[in-house]
Amino acid sequence: MGARSGGFRRSLGSQAAMGNILEIEDLSLTLRGSDGKRLPVLEDLRLSLSKGECLGIAGESGSGKSILAMTIMGLVPGASILERRGSVKFEGVELLGLSEDGFSKLRGNRMAMVFQEPMTSLNPLLTIGEQVGETIYAHQSDLSAADVEGRVCAAMSRAGFSDPGAYLASFPHQLSGGMRQRAMLAMSLVMEPDIIIADEPTTALDASLQVQLLDQLRHGVKDGGHALIFISHDLGVIRSIADRLAVLYAGFLVEEGPAAAVLEHPAHPYSAALTAALPRLTVEHRLPRSIPGHLPSPDKKPSGCVFSDRCVKAQRVCHETVPMSREVGRNRRARCLFPETVE
């Protein structure tokens, strides 16, 4: 059953590959731990991203979501990698094993990243104008200073600065948290990249600022026809921005599908537990429900299904067999032997 549905999916995948800008196939990554321990951080990951799409990646800390982003961006130090399998294709070009020169041409230019902490990711000694413009100089050194400034201002206004010119000469410490995060967003937009990866970009901000920034991110991305990978542990935030949602647990992609559908009718018990753990506003007197136990560390994953030791529905077979990812509904896949029926 598993093999048959796997083959069916594969053929679907190659058809869909036409419009896909990013194709991740069977990606596995094992890092070298201290004293040479094997740390499998990503296991058999299969994901794709099409143009103009916003993919949300959800998971707790330690689920592998940031390492996935860093693998796509080529930021995982080669020395720490013990084993790597599968492929990550960006417009048909294989990224795994691409040289540092190759990545330098892509990063900032075709793929950009918005990091979590604007205060540590911005250089305190350079002005905002210099930092946003730096990316342009790195990829197109022949532009005049005036052209660069024009493009910097355009990117800044798309990132939500109402008067970009006034902030060109500001240093990061002179800006509020929300402004700094907008400056980071401007840096990622300035070269009109095909893919923007945002790793928990709004977590440190107040709710009303988060709403503003998500709005700017969504417009910045849709208007420019970019594709967005939005990483967060907060399903609520993902719901408000993502078209499609992928849920990671201990390095496995446990569920994937249209964001609203997955959040309303989760098929995998982990996605269900994660939605129940979210504090709700419109529900009377219901404290968020916790998930018993804790996320296993990469070297101590349980045998069988990786969620089996915390799963309320786990049966004996779950502790013995690693479930394959399979179709559970329209455009939906889950890695579970006993998924909830959807639709």
Partner: peptide
């Protein structure tokens, strides 16, 4: 309003410009 947008995906529910 901001919390409803973030948590429940409901936007403009309170008629207050959160932006």
């Amino acid at each position: 309003g901001a919390a409803l947008t973030l948590r429940e995906g409901i936007s403009k529910a309170v008629g207050v410009d959160v932006k």
